[in-house]
Computed example of a mutant assay.
Amino acid sequence: MKNHVTVGVDGSPESRAAARWAAREAVLRQVPLRLVHAVDWPLDPVFPGLGRQDVDPWADQALTEAAEELHERHPHLEITIRCLTARPAAALAAEAADAGLLVLGSRGLGGLVGFIVGSVAMSTVVATDTPVVLVRVADDPDGPGTGSGAEVVVGVDIHEACDRVLSFAFEEAERRDCPLRAVHGWKMPAAYSYVPLFDPDNERDIGRSVTHMVDDMLLPWKHKFPDVNVSHNVFMGSAGEHLVRASQGAGLVVVGRHVRRSPLGAHLGSVTHAVLHHAAAPVAVIAHD
């Protein structure tokens, strides 16, 4: 049963922030937390001169210290640890298979807003169908980042089946007792670029039609989650840009990605890619068909 939260731990500030975020999420979900560290052996040349006899105790210590810190913060939270010898992305994806959520740390861009999504995080995101949340140090629930009462923002696409994405977003908003804001960006049909005398009323009509479609998409979820305060913003323009803008002050941004079986490519759409790299809040990536 997928009833626990898994978080990758490597002793870095980013992973410690992710572990604290994951612990709080596990408490909200009332499920156990699993801390996982994966050692890709051999480590050379990244850590020259470091032998396996040095790495194993260090990994165990990093996990133990993280578990002890989290237990002090959440004494009733069940915490387990696992240290694996495998490529980190593959190990984390395998560990996510029986989890309800996987949480990973990601480096922030210093004074700039956004993430540096490393190869391990990116490879893990596309290797698992389990929801993945990327967390920066600035998103640490005990640090200066946004508090738990901030709204959840979700990107919706009227041309796609977004049930998994909307289900995750509504459940998160309900757990956090916070508002949910749906964001959709649309563009004029390409044919309109060839019309010499474009009627602005057409743009307004299309905008109203798109807004009604977003309303219809959200309606059954509003009925299912009547306690969630839902709003939506429909814009003409780049959905990625609007989601990044909406992430300012948000507690969580939820986006989807297509599950693609091809072994080639990163399997991330342009909107999700933009949000992953530039959002000012933790980002949840939800795989869907």
Results as ranks from 00 to 15, higher is better:
residue 6 T to F: 07
residue 50 L to Q: 15
residue 74 H to F: 13
residue 72 E to D: 13
residue 43 L to Y: 12
residue 79 I to V: 12
residue 104 L to A: 02
residue 42 P to V: 06
residue 121 A to R: 07
residue 42 P to C: 04
residue 70 L to Q: 01
residue 95 E to T: 06
residue 90 A to Y: 06
residue 63 L to W: 11
residue 111 G to V: 12
residue 70 L to I: 12
residue 49 G to R: 01
residue 85 T to L: 08
residue 77 L to M: 07
residue 109 L to F: 01
residue 92 L to G: 04
residue 91 A to D: 06
residue 69 E to P: 09
residue 107 R to S: 15
residue 85 T to S: 02
residue 47 F to E: 10
residue 117 V to H: 08
residue 45 P to I: 10
residue 135 V to W: 03
residue 16 R to P: 03
residue 43 L to I: 13
residue 88 P to K: 08
residue 84 L to Q: 13
residue 39 V to S: 02
residue 82 R to S: 15
residue 49 G to P: 01
residue 23 A to P: 12
residue 56 D to C: 00
residue 110 G to K: 01
residue 100 G to I: 07
residue 81 I to E: 14
residue 32 P to Q: 06
residue 82 R to G: 07
residue 139 D to Q: 07
residue 114 G to S: 04
residue 73 R to H: 09
residue 37 H to W: 07
residue 11 G to P: 03
residue 58 W to H: 14
residue 119 S to R: 04
residue 112 L to V: 08
residue 34 R to G: 01
residue 25 E to A: 15
residue 78 E to M: 03
residue 27 V to T: 08
residue 59 A to H: 04
residue 28 L to S: 14
residue 144 P to Q: 15
residue 143 G to L: 09
residue 108 G to Q: 08
residue 38 A to V: 01
residue 124 T to P: 00
residue 90 A to L: 14
residue 20 R to K: 05
residue 142 D to A: 15
residue 105 G to D: 11
residue 32 P to D: 00
residue 40 D to I: 04
residue 65 E to R: 10
residue 76 H to M: 05
residue 84 L to M: 09
residue 140 D to E: 11
residue 139 D to H: 12
residue 49 G to K: 03
